[in-house]
Write a protein that binds this DNA or RNA. Structure first.
Length: 503
RNA sequence: GGUCCUGUGGCCGAGUGGCUAGGCAGAGCUCUGCAAAAGCUUCUACAGCGGUUCGAAUCCGCUCGGGACCUCCA
């Protein structure tokens, strides 16, 4: 029996996972900023952590999964025009900011459902937790690690680093950055610097009159800084110290580093034990991002309406594509790669469909092919080990694929049904279901055919069968070709039967 | 410029000292009236150079290439 291991960004090594409370896990994952439509890049963390969530549940843990919605505007970098990207776009689109946020939240949820991601236990919004954030900021000010300037509040990174570094919580502990170097290398920013130090970050930002998203605070009217919401909400719902904090690698610095500093001041401890970061999806080797102008929105991805795409890719194809790679590797997007996933998934799913419907004999006869039996059992038992090894979904998938020819050969009669014992066949059914359905969250995407269509096709199938038995291939081919043109593909099975697929 | 990661066959992508990844594509064969599907077989690898070792894709060094973060970002 292997045990679950995670690569912990905090310690930079693989560690055995042990929950703080036996049997219970608290997990916080940074959610989307709903100022725009979700894109392909968003698919990765939310599918990755959906797998983490599903796997922990599979292992029997009771998991509280918190994933926030960032719906409060974040300011841009100091030195640029100070603006809130949500409110800016709201003006452009002539919408209420909350209306805009709601629209993109809905779209995000639509995409998550399409991917068959389980809903988090709690999905808190930043705007719904302004009070908690203000309380936290007040505490940080009280303790002397933040200062107020012109209605804004900034975190004093240098003071924090000096005091908490002595307690083993230095600024840079997560990202491996050395503060002294940061102080030297941080770029010179233009003008109006209210901050004592360039690396200080905002906890609260004074809102200019034209700024639409605004709240009353002890320091005037403004809005929260871009890291405090996660600290406030994770503490509220998971406690001062919880098990897992997840997100994309790009959030490691500064976002998660700042979260640690804020929480450390308030709670005197690093908020999470295990920090998990998924790697990026790249397009032609470049990270996808707003600033690269190569963003494929999820709606475009599914429909194929983007100039990079030669066709649309279904949510399950995308999910499968992501699972075929380890989550800490970069994943390069291309039409070729997605088409490979589409075909691979189809083959896997068809084998699985046959396997799950296979009725097993009740007898306990031994396998007639011991070698094959042992090979199959070896692969099936190895899946858990691969999954426990920092969620090596790619390797699990490879193991399952090795069994596909076995299943198909049984189906085609090329391998005798008795080659494997019923016990092993049952194990195979169980493991395929567990991994593909329960843990990987894959679903059947084949178009549903209704009863009437089934009856019609059965009739047509019989007519065609008669024609074939008379060697009237002109008729049988006409039936097959015309149905294909109508989007129904007929397949003659080995056993003389016929199956069809709606294209 | 600083910090870090990475370079596997036509494409995607596991693997971290000796043992096969896997998917897709290509080729051949089998089955089939034909097709589709499926099965079997098969080809093209570990960026380059040097070192450590009985043995390296895997460890070390250098060279070259790619990327991430340092700024909103999944």
């Amino acid at each position: 029996m292997s045990t679950l291991q995670f690569y912990n960004s905090l310690t930079r090594e693989k560690e055995a996972f042990k929950s703080i409370l036996p049997g219970k896990v608290g997990m916080y994952v940074c959610g989307p900023t709903v100022s725009g439509e979700s894109h392909l890049g968003h698919a990765r963390p939310f599918i990755t952590f959906d797998i983490v969530y599903r796997y922990l549940k599979h292992l029997g843990y009771q998991v509280r999964y918190v994933r926030n919605i960032t719906d409060a505007g974040h300011f841009e970098e100091e030195g640029r025009e100070s603006e809130d990207k949500i409110s800016k776009k709201a003006v452009l689109e002539k919408m209420e900011p909350m209306e805009l946020v709601q629209k993109y939240t809905n779209l995000f949820h639509w995409a998550m459902r399409a991917f068959n991601n389980l809903e988090p236990s709690i999905e808190p919004t930043a705007t719904g937790h302004i009070v908690e954030q203000i309380v936290m900021i007040e505490k940080i000010i009280q303790d002397g690690y933040a200062y107020v300037v012109n209605g804004s509040v900034y975190f004093d990174v240098e003071k924090y680093h000096k005091d908490f570094g002595a307690k083993g919580m230095q600024y840079g502990i997560l990202s491996g950055r050395v503060l002294e170097e940061q102080l030297e290398t941080t770029r010179e920013l233009e003008s109006q610097d209210e901050k004592r130090n360039k690396i200080d970050f905002a906890l609260w930002k004074n809102a200019a009159p034209e700024h639409i998203m605004r709240w009353q605070s002890p320091w005037g009217i403004g809005f929260p800084g871009w890291h405090i919401e996660c600290s406030a909400m994770s503490t509220k719902y998971l406690g001062e110290e919880f098990d897992i904090h997840g997100g994309g690698m790009d959030l490691q610095f500064p976002h998660h580093e700042c979260e640690i500093a804020q929480s450390a001041v308030c709670n005197h401890k690093i908020p999470a034990k295990y920090w998990l970061h998924n790697n990026m999806i790249t397009i032609n080797g470049k990270k996808m991002g707003k600033s690269y102008n190569n963003v494929i929105k999820l709606s475009e991805l599914f429909s194929g309406t983007h100039e990079i795409l030669t066709q649309g890719y279904s949510p399950m194809t995308v999910r499968f594509f992501i699972l075929q790679t380890h989550y800490r590797s970069t994943l390069d997007f291309s039409n070729e790669a997605l088409q490979a996933s589409e075909k691979g998934l189809k083959r896997m799913w068809e084998a699985f469909s046959y396997l799950r419907k296979m009725s097993l004999s009740q007898t306990d006869a031994d396998a007639s092919n011991i070698e094959l039996e042992n090979k199959v059992i070896g692969i099936l038992n190895g899946l858990e080990e691969d999954m426990n090894d920092d969620l090596n979904t790619a390797k699990v998938m490879a193991g399952l694929f090795e069994l596909v020819p076995v299943i198909n050969s049984i189906k085609d009669g090329k391998i005798d049904r008795n080659a494997l014992s019923s016990k092993t066949l049952a194990l195979m059914q169980g493991q395929f279901t567990t991994y593909l359905v329960d843990i990987f969250g894959l679903t059947d995407e084949s178009k549903q055919d209704d009863d009437k269509l089934t009856a019609v096709l059965q009739l047509i199938g019989e007519i065609r069968k008669d024609a074939r038995s008379r060697k009237d291939f002109a008729t049988s081919d006409k039936i097959r070709n015309q149905l294909l043109a109508a989007g129904i593909q007929l397949k003659d099975e080995k056993d003389g039967g016929m199956s069809w697929e709606l294209l």
